[in-house]
Design a protein around this nucleic acid. Sequence first.
DNA 1: AGTTCATTTGGTCAATTGGCAAACAATGAG
DNA 2: CTCATTGTTTGCCAATTGACCAAATGAACT
Lengths: 120, 120
Amino acid sequence: MTTESYLVIVPNMKMNDKQRARCETRAAILKALAHPTRLFMIEELADKSYCVCELTEMVGLDISTVSKHLSILKNAGLVNVEKKGKQVFYSLRMRCALNFFDCVEAVLREQAKDRMDAIQ
Amino acid sequence: MTTESYLVIVPNMKMNDKQRARCETRAAILKALAHPTRLFMIEELADKSYCVCELTEMVGLDISTVSKHLSILKNAGLVNVEKKGKQVFYSLRMRCALNFFDCVEAVLREQAKDRMDAIQ
DNA sequence: AGTTCATTTGGTCAATTGGCAAACAATGAG
DNA sequence: CTCATTGTTTGCCAATTGACCAAATGAACT
């Protein structure tokens, strides 16, 4: 019996540590966006800056809740913070986040189409 | 004393029901994306379709866990499902979801820059 | 009809999330 | 200085999430 050596290039399918880390950091940013209240604030901040008290009025939740949501957006690097006197103003930092919404809308349209097809 | 009528356009700041509903449906889709395992699978499915057993091997979690993650992606309208013999194949439905990653990477680069600035 | 392989479903558990309220901090007005 | 206003942090609670295991289902092949 003879033996032979082969160098076989097998695609490494298994998720490695580097991939896992990358997915976790990416998911963290998406998670920051993935809440209705935070999404609403991001959209409003696309037009202009608002202070916490204004945003609190707009979303209609407790100010402590709004403050926490804003700190999540800040930690994700999605908004800028600027203190002016007693007030703290937030502004949109990553305008490209708004591009997400186009795709999301496309997904929703597709979903609607699917449901129509299912009925027919 | 005279009276006069004015039509005053006051920007309605408060989130109304329609806006709330819209933010909730959008957030639901982002939520489906906002998990490291699901993000990894979405990226892998960008190249080709895989069955549940393959994806299970790739992510290294219990098959029931992977199946559940896939059903979340399916319900969000992000993937297609096709049964072939004994196996169930998933494929990427909304390729525009991949565009999200460009912005996410930009956010991460900005974050890194901020940290550098903070050190200097 | 029964066996096997692939997938889904249901149950349990620990960890996380999102809400409010109360305490705390900082700024500006009187 | 004292007080009111604005925000942040902390503590607490209910609800949700993500993981596993076990059991049920489904589809193809003896």
